[in-house]
């Protein structure tokens, strides 16, 4: 004979036992990862000494407020420009071919050498001498390249104007 019953005696988890089990599991994990734990503790110790932990802790605790303030700072035209410029600069470097850049950079490097020499010696050349320099093949090459550089820039400018009309 078994009457319907609804009473269930649940085993109430013993808090002391549960805690002991949890602690022993943690100790096991610590023992297994001894080296990593010790190193980590060392890092944490140093972070604490220089006050970084406190700062991070405060940031995390006030994360919503801090994010709002930070975003207010970012959410301004000047910042848009910075970020856009950064993106554009990033794109620009991406578009350069390394060999070309190398040629230009070595040119610039040598130019700087000459440039500083000139500045240091304080030498001033007469107009005539300057005019004569045009016959110098190195100067001629450089000027031709400069002109091509200007042409390329002009092309990009006029393309850009057309695009804006769209």
């Amino acid at each position: 004979m078994a009457k319907a019953i609804r009473q269930i005696k649940k085993e109430v988890p013993n808090p002391v036992e549960e805690k002991a089990e949890a602690i022993s599991a943690i100790v096991d994990a610590l023992a297994e990862n001894r080296d990593a734990i010790v190193k980590t503790l060392n890092i944490v110790k140093q972070l604490n000494e220089i006050g970084i932990l406190d700062a991070v802790n405060a940031l995390l605790e006030k994360r919503t407020e801090v994010s709002v303030i930070a975003l207010q700072q970012v959410n301004q035209p000047a910042m848009y420009n910075t970020v856009k410029n950064a993106f554009n600069a990033f794109k620009f470097f991406g578009s350069l071919q390394p060999e070309k850049l190398q040629t230009i950079m070595s040119g610039v490097d040598r130019s700087l050498e000459r440039f500083t020499d000139a500045v240091e010696s304080g030498e001033e050349q007469s107009l005539w001498k300057l005019g004569r320099s045009m016959t110098n093949p190195e100067i001629r090459t450089s000027l031709t390249s400069m002109l091509q550089f200007l042409r390329g820039m002009g092309e990009a400018f006029s393309e850009d104007q057309q695009q804006q009309l769209h």
Partner: peptide
């Protein structure tokens, strides 16, 4: 799970900067 007061300015910034959708 970002709360709206943080999320909305984030969306605004993204739109303002609009680096192109590819990125």
């Amino acid at each position: 799970a970002i709360p709206p007061k943080v999320l909305e300015p984030m969306i605004d910034i993204t739109k303002e900067i609009e680096p192109g959708y590819k990125q």
